[in-house]
Simulated assay, not measured.
Amino acid sequence: MTSEKNLRGVLRSEVDRSLSKDNIIIVDSLNSIKGYRYELWCLARAAGIRHCVLFTDVEETHCRKWNTERREKDESSYNDGIFEDLVRRFERPDRRNRWDSPLFELWPFKDGIEKSSPAIVDLVSYVTKKVDSKTRDVKILQPTIATQSVRFSEANSLYEMDRATQEVTSAIIEAQSLAMGGPVTGLSISHDLPTINISRSVGLPELRRLRKTFIKLTGQSSLSGPPPPSDADSAKRMFIDYLNREFGSE
């Protein structure tokens, strides 16, 4: 369950990063429970885009048969414990729920699945149709003030992080230039920030690599913890601490 929860978090983050008004995102994994479908719907609402659900309705007996046949062919399949758990926790989409609407349904064992299947044709039309002020059959989700504020805060944090780390990098390069390429120890950018101590000469490519790694690590940690710092001084302090740890361990 822990690995499934972590995977859902990674998948949700990838979806969030990929959402835009110009992309069509298909999420065909781990969305068998309504709570997760609601989370995906919230991401779509925050992005201000359209959203829909395609449900392939297959009876449990057929699913069980498919899984057994795949196992006999040494193809990817679920073991009995996982299969029973998935069946037990599965929650059918309900078009009365806003996060399951609009709902397009396929019945493979009754109608088959073809590109011309009505549900597929209707779905493709829904996600690709041009929308204007007169459109009534396509719903564009509208972000709330709360979701807009969160996205603005995240964007602001990334901007401050990028700018602050660039200033620290530039200060180190300038200090090394004044020291004729020698080590930088006791470099102070501000009296409110830690001093920078680098015991050897560091080239710009290495500093750029460390800066890129730091920004990436900070972004990843914010997925499960607090967001990145939104002010420049905090970002500089974190980056300086990171550099001192990196070079202090050599």
Rank of each mutant, 00 (worst) to 15 (best):
P108L: 04
F83A: 03
L123F: 03
L123S: 02
L86Q: 01
S101Q: 01
R95Y: 05
E114H: 12
R98H: 09
L86D: 00
K115D: 13
F109G: 11
P102R: 12
P118R: 08
R96K: 15
A119S: 15
V87A: 07
D122Q: 07
R89P: 01
R92Y: 05
S116D: 10
D111R: 03
R98D: 13
R96L: 14
V87Y: 05
F90H: 14
A119R: 13
K115I: 01
W99I: 03
D94T: 01
F90Y: 15
F109R: 15
K115R: 13
P93L: 12
E114G: 00
K115A: 07
N97D: 14
K115G: 13
L123H: 02
D85T: 08
S116I: 06
E91N: 15
S101K: 02
S117M: 05
P118T: 10
D94L: 07
P93K: 11
V87I: 14
L86A: 03
W99A: 02
P108N: 08
G112C: 10
P93I: 11
D94N: 12
W99L: 05
R88T: 06
E114V: 00
D94Y: 06
I120N: 00
R96S: 15
G112L: 04
G112I: 03
R92Q: 14
E114T: 04
P118D: 06
F109T: 15
G112T: 06
L103P: 12
P118E: 10
W99M: 03
P102K: 12
N97Q: 10
P118I: 02
W107H: 13
V121W: 01
R98Q: 12
F109E: 15
F109P: 02
K110M: 06
R98I: 11
F83S: 02
R95T: 05
D100H: 12
F109W: 15
S117L: 05
I120T: 00
